[in-house]
Design a protein around this nucleic acid. Structure first.
Lengths: 234, 234
DNA sequence: CCCTCTTGTGTACAATTGTTCACTGAATAT
DNA sequence: ATATTCAGTGAACAATTGTACACAAGAGGG
């Protein structure tokens, strides 16, 4: 009754131990199988979130069923649902790092870079719908541990961007402290659009463009303010 | 077994119909009693939210028990938990209007007004902890109807502020459309702090001041950007 | 080859869930 | 004074929940 797509155990369930010593190096290896069902559980949870359920109200049993696994098996991988959530935050973190890498490659001028980065962000949100849904849900509605974990991931994002802007020397006149304040503002602004993007009627081009346009304007306006910041009152 | 504070039914439970025709104008009046338990249910839900539970995972029975009422009685007031949530959004809306009124009375210069408004907001969040917790939870983790209702309340906020700024002629050079973009940015920035305020270790003066300072800086920076906006490219 | 270790299964149980139904008693209307 | 309305009660229900336990079977090490 394995419903997960990645299932490998015995494609031919009848033959039990054909090729006994044949191939064991590449596949199976107990721990890789474990990783698979573990991932299946995480994916199942994400899918339920994508289906409209709040992560906080998802039951262990539902997750197990959706992963094609018996409820008690859940405990072999996670102590509790919150534990699974923390693993999802790890996955989220990796995704955010990929996003950061994509965003860095874009544009030369500041304006181009802003435009490209916002578009990359929106695209990433659409490509990882469930994970971002999980993020916005748990950021404000998760257990303290979950909220904290997500806050840390976003903090990493801020730190990286601070470094980038410092290196690029875009705002040489602002103190490090104020730069952090400004970057937080930018990140919050972009993050805030996440909800709007997720509520979009599945890929309405014009609506998506509208959100992008507004967000790009907002970030540009922030940079405008940053350029004027303290230039007259150092 | 009435646990709610506002209970009035028969303070002396023994006498049943003393003063039969005595006083009936001022108190009791069936429908006012109904409003009371209705409010008790809403307060119970808020208290559970304040206790750390996510609104999405709060059970009808728990709410009823916490309101000192039998579960079936819940249905006399709300069809479902989402229905109760929508009523909570109404309460939230009224509170936000009060907040708006408080914020309007503050300061003359733009800088003073920003400072005062942010401080008023933070104070309101601390004074209505549970209601704001409910708001941030449901804004991103509620059912579609709930999310929409809350989005509307925030939209009202944006519209009002747009009118205020238009009247005050602070930014005469920006189009109405761009003004909306800017005001959304401001509101989002302030709303974003809500989470940080709520996570504060219950009234840590210094931490609170830190958040206020940063937020004030951010809003001022936005206004700086707004003043420069399009002044060179109309 | 056998022994052990570990992932997944199946059964079981007490607790809690949303919802139904018939009821009670007091506030209201007549 | 009598009849009606209706907020709140209490028992009952089927379903779902988290968790415990003994067991099965295959992989991995000796």
């Amino acid at each position: 009754m394995n419903l997960n797509v990645v299932t490998l155990p015995s494609l031919q369930p009848s033959r039990q131990a054909v090729t006994p010593t044949a191939k064991k190096p590449a596949m199976s290896t107990r721990e890789s199988k474990k990783k698979q069902t573990r991932q299946a559980l995480m994916n199942a949870a994400l899918e339920l979130v994508g289906r409209g359920d709040n992560f906080a109200s998802i039951s262990l049993r539902e997750v197990a069923k959706n992963a094609g696994v018996v409820p008690t098996s859940f405990y072999r991988h996670f102590e509790t649902m919150e534990d699974l959530g923390l693993s999802l935050v790890d996955e989220l973190g990796m995704m955010l790092r990929r996003l950061m890498r994509s965003a860095r490659q874009a544009g030369q001028s500041l304006n181009d870079q802003i435009k490209a980065s916002v578009e990359v962000y929106v695209q990433h949100v659409l490509d990882n719908r469930n994970l971002f849904l999980f993020m916005v849900q748990c950021r404000s509605g998760g257990t303290p541990a979950l909220r904290d974990a997500i806050r840390n991931e976003l903090r990493y994002f801020v730190n990286e961007l601070v470094i980038d802007i410092s290196r690029a020397d875009f705002l040489p006149h602002v103190s490090h402290e104020d730069l952090e304040m400004i970057v937080s503002l930018i990140i919050n602004t972009v993050a805030e659009t996440t909800l709007d993007i997720l509520d979009l009627p599945t890929a309405s081009r014009s609506q998506r463009a509208r959100i992008e346009t507004i967000t790009i304007k907002q970030v540009r306006l922030i940079f405008l303010g940053a350029l004027a910041w303290r230039s007259r009152k150092p």
